[in-house]
Design a protein around this nucleic acid. Structure first.
Lengths: 232, 232
DNA sequence: GAATTTTTTATTGTTGACAATTATTGGCTA
DNA sequence: TAGCCAATAATTGTCAACAATAAAAAATTC
């Protein structure tokens, strides 16, 4: 038998074996894609009818969405889809800067040599994708996400991992999706990714954290401009 | 019109106006105080009977506890009280270091002059309490918590605020409570608090973050020793 | 006697009806 | 007509019974 270990990491392993879980995924998708618009009211009986389930599991789905900060709920008054204004997004990017900076530091400490090689291979593929197809925005975006996921995984910190993958990335995806952000500055981002990977390879924790924080801060500046342009 | 802005921050404003909310608070207290021991199984019907409510709101309370990472739930198999082993606590303290370090940086940027004065007054009171009553462990602990709360509030970052006050502090309180940790090194902690307050007063963001991270890292070392001593 | 299959039991997931609360509307008074 | 109060409607919170799933126990077979 091969000693190949299954690198299955618990990144929301489709625990949608229950009705509430499935509906949670559906509504989450609707919110991120903007089908349920920001700030719109959530009425339990409506959604229960729409998804063909009773109010019990739907309620549980709503609670999970509240946990993911995708909806805001006030007792006896119902719930609304979250509104991603500039202040909210700034808070999120700042928190992300802190957590992912720490994740990069931990990755420099814990990432295996093979994982580092694999990470750099990923960046090679990313570079190729950029030069070959200048329009393939989607692939570039996926590559970007993949890079950050690997750093978070390599941190081996369960709390940071869950919060990055869970709340933060989803809210960022939602913002990106609904503001129609193109894969801005792909070459610049790639260069920064290479720097970070290099710092990790050299086991330079301090530098890895510094570069990651700078990288995320740069990303925020771009997002901020887009949001300001949009909401004026 | 006075330009005085209401600085009311949403620190869990006792939204226990519903049955589920009250029972959530009760169970949370039981878990933190160890009445429901770590790793013990949670049976819905039992708890519903114990607290005199039906399974509906109890289920909601359980979901909230899961959200706060106080219990772990697996579909169709029930839920268990979380077990705070050393690895878990290390993850939590590391995440706290990242978030609260950033909070200190933001506090140095945003905290009002009056709030800074008030913060230093708090430290004076803390110092007095230490010298006067060497045994009043509880008060010292409360002062410690109060200090960190004020920093988190001053960050004006909703995400960081909610996650520090919500999940992280509660898990830390639970660990502290159940391991019977005395208010270790009160003089040292106070000195570090003064340093941090001073950095904030001087609006030195870099220093404030650095000192806060060092402070939390020191606290972790103490906790780690206690846990190692306990679980051997 | 050990292992596997089947039956039983315990626990969670789901449902629809009922109660409580809040928001809305209509009517009344100043 | 404007403002306030009461009645109504809509929505959330709660309950108890039912269905489905998974764990535990018993029985059967090799």
């Amino acid at each position: 038998m091969g000693e190949v270990e299954q690198k299955e990491v618990n990144v929301t392993p489709i625990q949608a074996k229950t009705l509430a879980g499935k509906v949670y995924e559906s509504i989450k998708s609707d919110i991120i894609r903007g089908e349920l618009s920001q700030g719109s009211k959530i009425v339990e009986s409506e959604l229960a009818l729409k998804y063909g389930i009773s109010r019990g599991p739907l309620r549980e789905a709503i609670h999970r969405l509240e946990q993911m900060k995708l909806i805001l709920r006030v007792p006896h008054a119902g719930s609304r889809v979250v509104t991603l204004d500039i202040k909210t997004m700034h808070d999120i990017y700042t928190a992300r800067e802190a957590l992912e900076g720490m994740a990069a530091r931990l990755a420099a400490r814990h990432m295996s040599d093979e994982a580092i090689v694999s990470l750099q291979n990923l960046l090679d593929i990313h570079e190729q994708a950029i030069s070959e197809s200048e329009g393939k925005a989607y692939l570039q975006e996926e590559g970007n996400i993949d890079f950050h996921h690997r750093i978070a995984n390599a941190s081996q910190n369960q709390w940071i991992l869950e919060n990055l993958n869970g709340e933060l990335y989803q809210l960022i995806r939602m913002c990106r999706y609904q503001s129609g952000q193109q894969p801005t500055r792909p070459a610049t981002a790639l260069a920064q990714h290479r720097q970070i990977a290099s710092a990790i390879e050299q086991r330079d924790e301090e530098l890895a954290e510094l570069l990651m924080r700078r990288h995320i801060n740069d990303a925020w500046k771009v997002v901020k401009k887009i949001l300001e342009l949009q909401h004026d």
